[in-house]
């Protein structure tokens, strides 16, 4: 009983905020590390289709991205309204694929080159014609591991 009374006499001290910046910095560093600033700005619209049998791509450095879709409004004047292929940050044709793959392969450790995956980010409204051409080009270039990028489907 007496214990409680003693406490009442004390003025409760303010919570020290001295460590607040440290906590915030910790959060800050976490987000800085996690953030992936997308290196390629998309010039084509890509809304990936939905699927259920999905595999997660683990290592970002072992993945190269090929985008296929209709050019965005700003680029329709010079690129047309037909679906186009985008490699890196510019429009390309299927003839540019071997060079693109070779450039990426250069940057990958030799032992891991067999694990390189090509992620095809294709808009769902695109017809298979251009996709088939890209697939053929990939096969000719010896890139067999392909991932059709898709969103998980609910239910």
């Amino acid at each position: 009983m007496s214990k409680f009374q003693k406490k009442r006499g004390k003025s409760n001290p303010a919570i020290s905020t001295a460590s607040l910046p440290d906590i915030i910095f910790m959060l800050l560093f976490f987000f800085m590390v996690v953030t992936v600033l997308r290196d390629a700005s998309l010039k084509v619209t890509v809304r990936t289709p939905q699927a259920t049998e999905l595999t997660k791509l683990e290592k970002k450095s072992l993945v190269n991205y090929l985008y296929i879709g209709v050019p965005t409004k700003e680029h329709q004047a010079d690129a047309g309204t037909k679906p186009r292929l985008q490699l890196g940050d510019k429009f390309a044709t299927t003839d540019d694929i071997p060079l693109f793959l070779a450039n990426h392969r250069e940057n990958v450790d030799e032992r891991q080159r067999g694990l390189i995956t090509s992620s095809l980010r294709v808009d769902r409204e695109v017809t298979m014609g251009i996709v088939s051409d890209v697939k053929t080009a990939l096969r000719k270039a010896g890139q067999f591991k392909v991932n059709y990028s898709a969103k998980p489907r609910q239910g």
Binding site: K56, T136, G142, F144, V146, Y148
Partner: peptide, 14 residues
């Protein structure tokens, strides 16, 4: 936090 997921496929050699 981009989670790239998709249908993994192995293409046949050309």
């Amino acid at each position: 936090i981009v989670e790239d997921k998709g249908v993994l496929v192995r293409l046949p050699p050309w």
